[in-house]
Write a protein that binds this DNA or RNA. Structure first.
Length: 468
RNA sequence: GGCCCGUUCGUCUAGUGGUUAGGACAUCUGGUUUUCAUCCAGGCAACAGGAGUUCGAUUCUCCUACGGGCUACCA
């Protein structure tokens, strides 16, 4: 299929999370794969909840993971604006057209009345449906309300007794009876458009030919199709991807461990790790190689999008993070770690240090911990360390100190000497030394660590250990 | 209530009218690493349930259960 434009159109009522991001990533990858363009549109028609700070944050997050849009806010394009709040005049012409053809009508039933009607319908076991009293109202009745200063909403006259069908690229052939649909609102009382209207109209006006979105929109699709058809506007292809849920199966939220993109950024996740993870949940890629954005696009297949929902799994994200860190060059690693290496003594080469610890870290703060333990802090006597040091005994460290004092040329030889002096061997010998010298039970190879931190620090630490 | 979507190891998933139902993550065991990580070898672990169609259903159909969505002057 030849596509030339996909889109992502968030409403700026909150921060981007992994669910949104995955949907936008799919759209982005399809655009890149097909040499099409990727459009970003901000759907800020809900004046109450939309905030500029959110749309700015969303843009920043998208850029951080590398989803640069070809058309939209900041970069521009053929449209007057990519913020719907600035496109209101544009919608006017369509309202007029619809009104002329009697395809929409004003409705003066208040929200309160609607609520009561709905409640009664549900209580009576009936489908909660707009009863349509205003759909047959006369000009006079309408005028009467207008004269009273009442503002109407406008409802779309859904055609009755027809079937609306479309081919969904993920879910397959879909078919809905319009009898199950009621006359939905296209324009609110404050004259702003509803999502159902603006979203569909804009996709068509902007030449979007693939609408890939969450499957929470699947049953909205027939309404949007009916609207577009009544206006003789072009229909896009549709692809509805299933939800990306929290680990408990509920929609992503703070409560089930959902992280915002800025959380991830702050924690030191690498964009490429996030991208590789997200490309493989709800979509199959045959291998487990860490791929570049371009490679991900090449591997993307709409037919490989899963139609069932998937759960967020931190372990799997972590797996890609490890791979991504491994894949970093020393220079890339340095800039990733910047700010965490500030306490490194001037005598220590940053690159050398990075090379030493790179395999042992997944996040920048772990590098900071190494700096701290190796160069800055006194020996941390947490429970685990204390146990190891105490079971080795004071005598052990005094003897070790003597050996090291006698000259440290080769760590392996030194170990042998300590072994001879103390009678300890294997783990008994090695762990206490590691803990004393590095302050941790784990970490890079000891001889390399010692090479980097120097004799003085080793002595200092053994001294400390001997006094515990 | 109506309409719609979904259900394969704990998780992400592959797969087929006849397979020992495959892989990855996690986990466990062993080896390498005098630690950890890495790496290597191996283990545990799944077709939601019930009917039907069929010589044979995880695969096709229907029902049920469970999860989710829409049914908003939210998107």
């Amino acid at each position: 299929m030849k596509l030339n434009k996909t889109r992502f159109c968030p409403s700026p009522t909150g921060l981007l999370h992994l669910g949104n991001l995955r949907t936008s990533l799919f759209s982005f990858l399809i655009a890149k794969k097909t040499n099409g363009s990727f459009l970003l549109r901000i759907e800020d028609t809900d004046l109450e909840r939309s905030k500029k700070e959110f749309s700015d944050a969303i843009c920043a997050d998208l850029k951080w993971v590398g989803l640069e849009w070809d058309e939209g806010p900041e970069v521009g394009g053929e449209e007057k604006s990519y913020y719907q709040s600035q496109r209101l005049e544009l919608y006017q012409e369509f309202y007029e057209k619809l009104l002329d053809q009697d395809l929409i009508y004003p409705c003066f039933t208040s929200e309160e009345e609607l609520k009561i009607i709905r409640r009664n319908q549900i209580a009576a076991g009936q489908p909660p449906r707009y009863t349509g009293v205003w759909s047959q109202a006369s000009k006079e009745e309408v005028q009467e309300e207008l004269d009273k200063g009442n503002k109407p909403v406008y409802r779309f006259r859904i055609p009755k007794k027809t079937t609306i069908s479309f081919m969904d690229l993920v879910k397959g052939e879909q078919s809905f009876s319009t009898d199950d649909l009621d006359d939905f609102i296209v324009r609110k009382k404050d004259s702003t458009p509803t999502f159902m209207f603006a979203n569909a109209i804009d996709d068509s006006l902007m030449g979007v030919d693939l609408v890939l979105r969450g499957d929470d929109h699947l049953s909205n699709t027939p309404r949007q199709i009916a609207l577009l058809e009544s206006l003789d506007l072009s229909l896009p292809h549709y692809a509805h991807v299933s939800l990306f849920t929290g680990s408990d199966g509920a929609p992503l939220s703070k409560r089930n461990g959902s992280l915002s993109i800025s959380d991830l950024k702050e924690m030191g996740y690498l964009p490429i790790a996030v991208l590789n993870y997200l490309s493989r949940v709800g979509h199959t890629i045959n291998d487990n190689d860490l791929k570049t954005q371009k490679e991900l696009a090449d591997s993307f297949e709409t037919k490989n999008i899963s139609s069932s929902p998937s759960k967020f799994d931190l372990d799997q994200l972590l797996f890609w993070q490890k791979k991504a860190v491994d894949n970093l060059t020393i220079d890339e690693c340095a800039s990733w770690l910047s700010g965490n290496l500030d306490d490194l003594p001037p005598t220590v080469q940053e690159r050398g240090f990075i090379e030493l610890i790179k395999e042992n870290i997944n996040f920048p703060n772990e590098a900071k911990e190494y700096v701290d333990n190796l160069f800055v802090s006194a020996l941390s006597a947490d429970e685990e360390n204390l146990k190891i040091i105490q079971s080795a005994g004071q005598e052990f460290f005094i003897l070790a100190l003597e050996v090291v004092n006698a000259g440290l040329s080769d760590w392996k030889q030194t170990c042998k000497d300590i072994e001879a002096r103390t009678g300890k061997k294997g783990k008994e010998l090695f762990m206490p030394l590691r803990v004393a010298i590095t302050g941790q039970t784990r970490g890079p190879e000891l001889d390399k660590v010692i090479e980097l931190i120097g004799l003085e620090r080793v002595l200092e630490r053994l001294q400390e250990a001997s006094q515990i």
